[in-house]
Design a protein around this nucleic acid. Structure first.
Length: 460
RNA sequence: GUGGUUGUAGCUCAGCUGGUUAGAGCGCUGGAUUGUGGUUCCAGAGGUCGCCGGUUCGAACCCGGUCUUCCACCCCA
């Protein structure tokens, strides 16, 4: 009895063409990460249960994949526990490990564990899969790849400035135009909540505000009231709903609103510097936008918040995000280290590039030369030529058996080989080989000793 | 986690108010073309109709469950 195979919901197989495309994206990201001075690390796919739990809020805890203990995993439970089903309560006793939920918390853990061997400021990048027990949708998977670059142990807005440049350079190199980098500041949001009198409900306030573009002002106000934010506070927030346009204009209006909030003014000063310096440096492919409603992202952000939106023509959630978190490592006992970082969502960037047709055609070509097999004696000679080409760095292959020519040519065509080499009975006797240009259909005969001439013609 | 949606050949999809032998295009295999692919022509193979159960004389079609896909919330890359 054979069973019909399947893979878990929200996971995917990647075929050769897809891997080539994913490698194209990660190659560009990795290249830019390294140019910007980041160093790679890797961490385990699963961490201790306690390392991850409680770091992403209540919703995050629910979305963490827990790993059931091996062996007699119920031995820690009391008979009374078994009588009263309560998954919430049992989980910590049944699970000592959980799958990585993002790359930031494992990085914080890494920094604390390796603090004595790290030279600060430490700039690290990490490209690895993460797992979330979310309900899948387009661009939302249970297993997906993040490409993170973070700096730990460095304050000052210059890091944020660099990260904006890093985003821009990657999108420029991917030829992805029209990306918007949305920027906000946690301290501004705190300041606003403070001055309008909703300081206690900062999270509820920002979560509701974040939905402005999507559900409109009235529904946002309704949600705020429903969450228990006073009517007077909501009324005071009115100017926010009208904000828009150039960053400087928004900043000037916010200065008026936040003049009595020290925290708020700090945030404004930082954003002002970021926007001023950013416009001096310039951007090649993307645009920065101050979006005061931006609140998404993890709770631990304390400074600048970044989120990257795909070009407007594409319906897709954010393709990247990031920000600054003071005291990144505090939860693991190392106080006073500030961290700032960004993330690229590989899988969503893939979908965007695919939809816009931005993958280079070249990615489909995985062979430079394909050699036809005419029989044992001819194949021996062909293999010698193939090995010579391989030694020169060319991708060359030989058909494994003397199948019908039609079959071998069809195979070469599908493999995308631009050149096919033929060494048949006649060429074997003559000491020659034929090169067929598959695109043009033309053929050229070379003397065997001139194979390097042929190889060089492919390498220019 | 809540509500909805989808599933028919390798792929994209038809398939009438339930009716007996489930179709097309593309792809695949073979041939026209025993030293030439991408064009053309001819022939052929390929489906437990996602899975399990129910209703019915009879189910791809109706009902329930389950898995999967996608969508809206929630949240996020």
């Amino acid at each position: 009895m054979s069973q019909k195979p399947s893979i878990p919901k929200g996971t995917r197989d990647f075929s050769p063409a897809e891997v080539a495309r994913r490698n194209y994206i990660t190659g560009i990201i990795r290249g830019q990460f390294e140019r910007f001075g980041f160093q790679p690390i890797e961490t385990p796919s699963f961490e201790q249960y306690d390392t991850l739990m409680g770091k992403y809020g209540e919703e995050g805890d629910r979305l963490i994949f827990k790993i059931l203990n091996s062996g007699d995993f119920v031995k820690n439970l009391e008979p009374a526990d078994l009588a009263a089903p309560d998954a919430q309560k049992w989980t910590p006793q049944l699970c000592e490990k959980a799958l990585r939920y993002d790359l930031t918390v494992p990085f914080a853990r890494y920094v604390v564990m390796h603090q004595n061997e790290i030279d600060f400021p430490f700039k690290r990048y990490q490209i690895q899969p993460v797992w979330r027990a979310d309900r899948p949708q387009r661009g939302r998977f249970r297993e997906f790849w993040q490409c993170d670059a973070d700096v730990v142990g460095a304050g000052g807005i210059v890091q944020e400035l660099e990260l904006v440049q890093l985003y821009d350079r990657v999108f420029y190199e991917l030829d992805l135009k029209g990306v918007t980098i949305k920027i906000n500041h946690r301290k501004i949001l705190s300041g606003i909540a403070e001055v309008i009198g909703a300081g206690e409900q900062l999270v509820d306030f920002t979560v509701a505000l974040d939905k402005l573009d999507k559900i409109g002002r009235e529904k946002v106000e309704a949600e705020m009231l429903q969450k228990g934010i006073p009517q007077a506070a909501v009324a005071k927030a009115a100017p926010l709903f009208e904000l828009g346009g150039a960053a400087q204009g928004q900043l000037d209006q916010l200065k008026e609103l936040l003049k009595d909030s020290k925290t708020g003014m700090e945030g404004l000063a930082e954003l002002e510097e970021l926007f001023t310096e950013s416009s001096k440096l310039g951007l090649k492919a993307s645009a920065c936008q101050l979006q005061i409603t931006l609140a998404r992202g993890l709770n631990y952000y304390t400074g600048v918040i970044l989120e990257v939106a795909a070009p407007e023509s594409i319906s897709m959630g954010s393709i990247g995000g990031g920000g600054r978190y003071d005291d990144l490592t505090g939860i693991f006992g190392l106080q006073g280290l500030s961290g700032v970082g960004i993330s690229f969502g590989l899988d969503r960037i893939y979908l965007v590039l695919e939809q816009l047709g931005l993958f280079p055609d070249q990615l489909d070509q995985n062979l430079d030369v394909f050699c036809i097999n005419f029989g044992p004696a001819e194949a021996r000679d062909a293999l010698r030529l193939v090995m010579g080409l391989r030694d020169r760095g060319l991708r060359a292959d030989l058909y494994p058996e003397a199948a019908k020519l039609q079959k071998q040519f069809k195979y070469a065509d599908k493999r995308g080989a631009p050149y096919v080499v033929l060494i048949g009975e006649e060429e074997l006797a003559n000491g020659t080989f034929i090169v067929k240009n598959m695109e043009e259909g033309s053929q050229q005969t070379y003397k065997r000793e001139d194979w390097v001439v042929f190889a060089r013609s492919l390498q220019t």
